[in-house]
Design a protein around this nucleic acid. Sequence first.
DNA 1: ATTTTTTATGATCGTTTGGTCAGAAATGAC
DNA 2: GTCATTTCTGACCAAACGATCATAAAAAAT
Lengths: 209, 209
Amino acid sequence: MPKTSKAPRTRIQKEKSGQILEAALEVFSNFGFRGSTLDQIAEAAGLSKPNLLYYFDSKEAIHAKLLEQLLENWLHPLRAMKAEGNAVEEIIGYVRRKLEMARDYPRESRLFANEILQGAPRIHGQISGPLKQLVDEKSVVIERWISAGTIAPTDPHHLIFSIWAMTQHYADFDVQVQAVLGERADRRFDDALAFLSNLFRNALSPRAF
Amino acid sequence: MPKTSKAPRTRIQKEKSGQILEAALEVFSNFGFRGSTLDQIAEAAGLSKPNLLYYFDSKEAIHAKLLEQLLENWLHPLRAMKAEGNAVEEIIGYVRRKLEMARDYPRESRLFANEILQGAPRIHGQISGPLKQLVDEKSVVIERWISAGTIAPTDPHHLIFSIWAMTQHYADFDVQVQAVLGERADRRFDDALAFLSNLFRNALSPRAF
DNA sequence: ATTTTTTATGATCGTTTGGTCAGAAATGAC
DNA sequence: GTCATTTCTGACCAAACGATCATAAAAAAT
């Protein structure tokens, strides 16, 4: 009797719960939690609705599992920004990794955006805990770069916010980006990387006096 | 028999439909369209549910009216960016106006974000029509500034995207911004304006060779 | 003061939705 | 091949929800 409170054990449990989470990600990221129905998810997963609830206790439980998986990987790009490297290149590298996540995992980005937009009721602890801690740590690194004169003075927290905002924008507001760009839309991620690299290089490279 | 397909006429109609739209903005911006119920809106407006539907044909109609009002003002800050002024200051002025909108009208920003996140089903025409047209026009202005050498070369469309992303971030992701900033949160809009002004000034000021 | 029009509501309806349950079908162990 | 366990489903339920309607209360017009 599964009801996946514990990790999937059998081959079938792994397969089916994987299908369900994949389908749920597709549906939740497009319609939000309240806007999605178990019937939609069941249809997308190719399973019956009662069968969903054989593997997960509730709609909430599916959503919670998705958020849990998401948060595992969400901080990796920022963690990979190392104090040892060249400052400007480390920051631009972070921008690149975050933009690649927006390109390759837009559904995860929209799931996250939906959650924050509604006030982050289910992940507020993760935000004010581990996320804040990581940002504070990396802000110290950036402060040191500024003191060492390897990047121009700037507010580290808001610098990180600006990177989040601009990269996630290409996932969360993709419809608008594509509509405004028109025929140039297919190159949008390459163009965005070029633009953002240029923007931050110009803004952050230390000035000669 | 109102059913506000036509504009409110009497004093009572103006008052009540105003109350309803105010309440609906509060609710829709927090929970999204599907996540909001007529009972919530009725409660927030201090009216009975059938009374809501006396003034508006449906839940959809309330939402549509809100989006219509929003789109009226949404483009003003960009329209106000004039080719005649100093290039860098015109762009920073646009950033400032957009950030002030995020600060003073966060509910409108979240309503818009919710709509775009779900694929802009109701306002796609506005995006690919008037919005795209305005962005294309202003991109020409920016191109001319670049040709004239008054700002550094950059991609005008993506420059505008980056301004949207960074300013709206402070409304749409306010929960996250506040949680990460901690005790500095109360100064977040002032700090953001200082950061963004500095960022764009550094990035856009033309370089000497 | 009377009539007409506007505004408001309690009761209720049909659907949708998340979730349950008894039992059938499939799978795996021996 | 038999039996036990896991997997799956059709039928169903209660609550929530958007919407309607007949009618009452309030406001405005005469």
